[in-house]
Amino acid sequence: MTSLWGYPFVHHAIEVGVITAVVAGAAGYFVTARNMGFAVHGLAEMGFTGAAGAVLAGIAPEVGLLAACLLAALAIGLLGVRLRERDVAIGTVLAFGLGLGVLFLVLYTRYATEAFSILFGAILAVDAQDVVRSAIVGALVLAALLLVYRPLRFASIDPEVAEARGIPVRLMSVVFLVILALAVAEAVQVVGVLLIVTLLITPAGAARRLTAHPGRAILYSMLIAAGVTVGGIAGAVYTSWPVSFFVATLSLLAYLAARLAARPART
């Protein structure tokens, strides 16, 4: 690993990757607890449209990605009044976003390489500036999650009692969507839009197989996400196969291993 670590691009990739993975792993606990896998996809795909639009307008794609994720989060949060309506709201926003994305792609043919890196990730292309941005966004997301940890967990798992205890349950879901939008925008850099679940859902899914302790589940989820990301970067550097392939594969292996090692079922 030492010779590998010597290259600055690997250095940057691992820094951004670890920050992003830790954030995604922590958010993943709430994504799985709230059954929001579909929302993760919706946000990521809106992010794609935002990035495509930004390229078309001559702005940095990262800015468009982040802005579109945040807008989509607010739209879903405000439209998705009730739980059973949420999928309809997400689906509607998502389809609209992808439609726009297709349009942008057709309008700007030179966009193909940019599109590829947003769809499948481009972690090996990050620079020192990306490291700083990732660190700031990552610190913000983790601080926000820490601040709302108890009321968010209450509202996610036990909304009736949480509401009775005075927790603003609807506001909590909008707050979480915004947090999620930031986490998704970060994770897109590593694995891309199409493989977003590999960091935002699979590690949390593996962790929940290993423990019923909420704090530990979050910790394991962050560790698994960071592990598969670093492993994926290493694999890509040694073989020149895509990072996202390795991350997704390791993520699947971690999930299968967790299932095998699963805590004994209570009978």
Binding site: Y29, R150, R165, G166, A212, P214, R216
Partner: peptide, 28 residues
């Protein structure tokens, strides 16, 4: 509240549910 089913894999123990009644509404 009226009973609701919990996901069998939800990472939450009985004691966490009880604890939420005590301080689940507090920040941090």
């Amino acid at each position: 509240p009226q009973q609701r089913a919990f996901d069998p894999e939800l990472p939450l123990r009985g004691r966490d549910l009880v604890g939420m009644g005590l301080d689940g509404h507090r920040w941090g």
